[in-house]
Design a binder for these strands. Structure first.
Lengths: 346, 346
DNA sequence: TTTTAGGAAGAAATCGTTTACAATAAATGA
DNA sequence: TCATTTATTGTAAACGATTTCTTCCTAAAA
């Protein structure tokens, strides 16, 4: 039906293998035959069949992406389009294409990944999250399949190539920022505790408090989902406390947005009554009212670098494992109020 | 290396063809051998090789997505994550996976699509836009390759399956809305004129004006890019006119946001000085200040239905062409000011 | 007992490439 | 001149499935 390498071979009066070599631009073929073959390809409108190629090659030129939840859910958070941008930019640079994972439950996801790996559907995998005790990561490691992680693997980070921010530092920075502005009642609203990023940030938050001799209160730490609704739940909890916080370290812009709208409903205003710094600095942060002070973690770079490392691993499986740290930067806008400026101590 | 169908066959003491039949659950194989073979598969941890399958089958179980510009650029607009959500939801339901297109220029995109089609890399394609005189669409049509379009093909819409909103109607509705609220100086800020969606909406806008005997002014119609920056350009043009508009029909939320921030810079306030209704109703619309009145075009459905139609076409290539119309709904928020309430005429 | 039908499974071709190995002819060197 | 390279191309075996024929049984019909 479609025109194959054999048709080209016949027309150009050569063997199929010769055509294959011309495609690969093998130097062992003379320029004269190359020209002849290329002409034949042109004439017939020949295009190589990817599946046949992959099969013979054992390479697919495609990369698998594993989301923390089903793509359906994950795509609701602006984080993902942005990593995707970084990922697809680098992937396309190197002529790789992308393959999105399936599955609603963790069990289904694992099933899907096993399919990708065993079925040789992808050459490598980017994990878009890092969870504690993750079955999928364990599987990939055990299979010795090329993969990189966005975030920090908890167990043996040195033996897994990953790209991450310094989340501990970032959380400490923003907490310090609040402290410097005179806040002492600072709460932490994080995502699910089994995400490593949450743990890192929580630790940074705690460290900052300890250094400033502010007691760490269990009640000031809540963990909710990375969505708007999550933010709203958090508000309910925190603002029914006897002494509600005056400042919030929030792990995600979307959550912060949810928090602000809930706060608004309750008649509390930002930053007058409560200050907020969140993470990610997605476009929303700029356009909310008031605009959010947010930590820019350079999501695009996260994706871009993850693919970069992955391709290195694919091309040289024995290359060592790397850790790439993408710098962050807090972008100050209008959600932080100064209670009582501290003198610079340092 | 990896375990193949032959290994399973050997262990189960049957021919490879038998194993294949067991996988396909062919009724011509006895339950007893089926059990035996399945056991062998389990024991060896067998997973079928997708490439080999695709090659033999001439089907890939994957769908190609063609973006209006490179994925890199397109993903900046929240429209795309949301269609992607719809698309991936349906695709995963039917165990199809997704393949993102490559290419920065139109020429490169076409190249990429030709690769997908001729190289049998995908079973069908969803075009995420509809442009006038589009080479890619022409190619797909000429090849008689299964594809569906999100948006309305301009040339022969009846012979191409597509899913769309009634954009003419939607634009007329919002323009009428302005008119009813007493506005007479209504401008239109659209995307690129070679996108069919722009044309449809422009026509709806014009129709509403004519019906209300408001003159259609060339100066009140501008066309810019579907991004924040586009909105800002638009403001520069419109508000240097002698008689600037009091109401804006804007083709995209992101553009509207750009417009609002520019307006703010210029000391004009929304909706006091200028009213705005935009399209898409992405999450941003809800969180901007003031929150945007926006036409919800149900982006998720657009993607979901596009895949639905595509799968139908793939499974039955001779099924007729359809047009699915996804309903829209204007979501009123706080960017429209009543100048002078008209009596309901109808 | 022979024929026949039908169920179950195997053999081998096929899908469209790549690639190791072989083959040929021309060119080089002694 | 003959052996040996070297440059160029061909042959055929993978790659890992699916699928069309066959074949082989066994049991029912004649």
């Amino acid at each position: 039906m479609a025109v194959t390498i054999k048709d080209v071979a016949k027309l150009a009066n050569v063997a199929p293998s010769t055509v294959s070599r011309v495609i690969a631009n093998n130097p062992r073929i003379s320029e004269r035959t190359k020209r002849r073959v290329r002409e034949a390809m042109e004439d017939l409108g020949y295009h190589p069949n990817y599946n046949a190629r992959s099969l013979a090659n054992r390479s697919t030129q495609t990369l698998g992406l594993v989301m923390p939840s089903s793509a359906d859910k994950a795509l609701q958070n602006p984080f993902f389009p942005e990593v995707l941008r970084g990922i697809s930019t680098k992937a396309h640079e190197k002529e790789y294409t992308l393959y999105l994972s399936t599955g609603a439950t963790e069990e289904e996801m694992l099933e899907g990944v096993m399919g990708m790996v065993h079925g040789r559907r992808v050459d490598g995998i980017v994990m878009l999250y890092s969870r504690i005790d993750d079955k999928i990561m364990a599987f990939l490691e055990q299979q010795n399949f090329p993969f990189t992680v966005i975030g920090k693997p908890l167990v043996n980070p040195d033996s897994i190539t990953h790209v991450d921010n310094d989340n501990f530092r970032a959380a400490k920075d923003v907490t310090d920022h609040f402290i410097k502005k005179g806040h002492t009642h600072i709460a932490f609203v994080g995502g699910n505790l089994d995400l490593v990023v949450t743990v890192d940030r929580l630790n940074g938050y705690e460290k900052a408090l300890r250094e400033a001799d502010i007691p760490y209160e269990e009640d000031y730490v809540v963990h909710v989902e990375f969505l708007k609704e999550g933010g709203q739940e958090a508000v309910m909890e925190l603002f029914s406390l006897e002494k509600p916080p005056t400042a919030l370290v929030v792990a995600d812009d979307l959550m912060a947005l949810g928090i602000m709208s809930k706060l608004d409903e309750m008649g509390l205003s930002v930053p007058e009554d409560v200050s907020i710094i969140s993470f990610n600095n997605v476009m929303l942060a700029e356009y909310s009212s008031p605009p959010l002070t947010s930590v820019d973690i350079n999501i695009f770079q996260l994706g871009y670098q993850a693919v970069n490392c992955l391709l290195e691993k694919i091309n040289d499986p024995d290359s060592g494992n790397k850790r790439v740290c993408v710098p962050h930067k807090v972008v100050e806008r209008w959600t932080v109020k100064t209670l009582d400026e501290k003198k610079e101590v340092k």
